[in-house]
């Protein structure tokens, strides 16, 4: 672990692996509403889709319930990918299997949906990252079409930018997106191992990172967040790390993760005492014996490390990461 900035500190971890009730199964993304409730979007897995749903909680790990499920009906999902909340507290959820964006109320009632497979305006080939600008326009990362499409709040197509490729401004299977205080866009250009910044009109501004395993490198970044100072936070999905860069693109923080037990995890262990005891006698952090230096393998062995983090959110001085393969949400403080 390389810590350069002392301004970023690990705080705590939230969540638990669970397909029902409190917890998540392969969470993919999360979003806050205006009352500070968090909506965590779970994918579940192909063998058991019960984890395909939205869990409502808050930063104190208070659990408020769950809605949404796997299926083809309105308000259901197949491969849900990302979630965003607009200023009216409606939830927008992208589904990369059905090529639809579903709109739901924050109580979980289905409102509408739009999109279908294709490469025309308003059509998608794998909608992923979602973000709203200051006028409530929705930006959708249309990943296999290598572009971003912009919609008004009724789902009406407004404009698009980007094309597939690896030159500056081009996109290769992009995933997450965020919009900063100046309405600039940051996109996790997954296939090109970089973060790209665009103006609101879609003009290329700058790029951070390139393929590699060094701290300053990225491998298949999944998502990006930005704070008010222009610091850029990245989930380095293929390196299984959380990294931060300043606005010049210099690395200021990098960690493999230091997740600890959440409230819900403590509750589980307290009702399953044998596991708690066996766990307390175990050495959960150890010298890594090889694994061909493959960080995916290393993270599969060391529980506190990030394992395929898919989403990162900056919210009121805190960074919340969706640590997908570990079904939890580590939180960092930014000062």
């Amino acid at each position: 672990m390389t810590t350069i900035s002392s301004k970023i500190k690990y705080k705590n971890t939230m969540g638990l692996a669970a397909m029902q009730g409190r917890g998540f199964y392969y969470p993919m993304d999360l979003a806050f509403d205006s009352s500070e409730k968090i909506y965590v979007l779970g994918r579940g897995h192909d063998g058991d889709p019960r984890g395909c749903r939205i869990v409502v909680m808050d930063m104190n790990e208070e659990y408020y319930g769950t809605f949404g499920s796997f299926g083809n009906e309105n308000g259901q999902f197949i491969w849900p990918s990302c979630i965003a909340v607009n200023s009216k507290d409606n939830l927008f959820i992208s589904d990369e299997a059905t090529n639809k964006i579903t709109v739901m109320s924050k109580e979980g009632n289905y409102i509408s949906s739009f999109g279908e497979f294709g490469s025309g305006n308003g059509q998608f080939d794998g909608p992923n990252g979602l973000a709203f600008d200051h006028d409530d326009n929705l930006y959708v990362v249309d990943h296999r079409n290598g572009r971003v499409q912009v919609f008004d709040e009724d789902g009406k197509f407004i404009r698009k930018f980007g094309k597939p490729g690896d030159l500056s401004g081009e996109l290769n299977l992009p995933w997450g997106i965020t919009i900063d205080s100046k309405n600039n866009l940051y996109i996790a250009d997954w296939g090109n191992h970089r973060i790209q910044e665009f103006s609101n009109d879609g003009d290329f501004i700058k790029s951070i990172g390139s393929y590699g395993k060094k701290d300053t490198d990225l491998i298949h970044p999944s998502d990006v967040a930005v704070d008010l100072k222009g610091n850029v936070f990245v989930t380095d999905w293929g390196n299984h790390r959380f990294k931060a860069f300043n606005q010049n693109g210099d690395l200021i923080y990098s960690t493999r993760g230091e997740a600890t037990l959440s409230k819900w995890a403590h509750d589980f262990l307290n009702t399953n005492i044998e596991e708690k005891e066996a766990r307390s006698k175990s050495k959960l952090v150890f010298e890594l014996p090889g694994f061909d230096k493959d960080p995916h393998e290393e993270s599969s062995h060391v529980e506190k490390y990030f394992w395929s983090p898919t989403s990162i959110t900056f919210y009121k001085g805190e960074i919340i990461i969706v640590d997908s393969n570990r079904h939890r949400l580590p939180v960092y403080l930014v000062s």
Partner: peptide, 11 residues
Amino acid sequence: RRIEDNGSGTD
């Protein structure tokens, strides 16, 4: 399942 519940279910 467990005699004691875990808050909303049983293990």
